[in-house]
């Protein structure tokens, strides 16, 4: 019973942790939606530059593919965090109800006997919700790692864009500016997600 109690108490406090993670993920989703615009801008700039920036055009096109994949991956991450918030809030409610039952149980032997089956049912429910929360966290970690891997691709693309910008002739400065914009956006996503992964591991 004590083990269950300790375990459920920590799961009940998951809600504040989840809320914090949710805010970080929402921030990344907002930045990610900007990648598509950056990629589009890169493609248009490459088109204006003509033949000299064919390499840059190829990288920009890949960047658009990346932005679509990133958007899909972030939507998946958002859906997972939504489930986690819901399950953590449900656990909070069950924890609250359990506290009332424990108060009744503490009022003597008769109450203890009366409450025993009720608490057993409550613990079963909480175990079930706890299992859901554990699975939610696991799925979130997996998805987070997938997104981080994807961001590494984005990082490679931004480096390639910087290299290709050098061959842009009189458009080099503009292409470099776009390449820097790509790098900044990808880095911002990458660092926020890495920080989130560290926070979740604590």
């Amino acid at each position: 019973m004590e083990e269950i109690s300790d375990n459920t108490a920590s799961q009940a406090s998951d809600l504040c942790r989840v809320v914090k993670a949710n805010e970080d993920i929402k921030k990344v989703i907002r930045i990610s939606s900007g990648v598509n615009l950056v990629a589009l801008n890169a493609m248009l700039t490459a088109k204006r530059s003509g033949e000299r920036s064919r390499g840059f055009a190829v990288v920009s096109s890949e960047l658009r593919v990346f932005s679509r994949k990133l958007e899909g991956a972030m939507t998946g991450l958002g859906a997972l965090i939504f489930e986690l918030v819901r399950d953590a809030a449900a656990m909070r409610k069950q924890h609250h109800e359990r506290r009332h039952l424990l108060n009744i149980q503490a009022r003597g032997q008769q109450m203890r006997e009366l409450m025993e089956p009720v608490l057993a049912r409550m613990d079963e429910r909480m175990h079930k919700t706890g299992g859901e929360i554990g699975r939610d966290w696991h799925r979130l970690h997996i998805q987070l790692n997938r997104v981080l891997q994807l961001c590494e691709t984005g990082g490679s693309l931004s480096r390639s864009a910087k290299i290709e910008a050098v061959y842009g002739g009189d458009m080099t400065a503009t292409l470099k500016q776009v390449a820097n914009q790509i790098e900044e956006t990808v880095n911002e996503i990458f660092s926020t997600l890495k920080l989130l992964r560290t926070q979740l591991a604590e």
């Binding site: 809320v19 949710n22 958002g78 939504f82 918030v85 819901r86 399950d87 809030a89 449900a90 909070r92």
Partner: peptide
Amino acid sequence: GMEIFSAVFSAISAEVDPY
């Protein structure tokens, strides 16, 4: 109500920081 707390809380959190 208490029964719908998780549904309300998660719907709000999806868009707004509940703090």
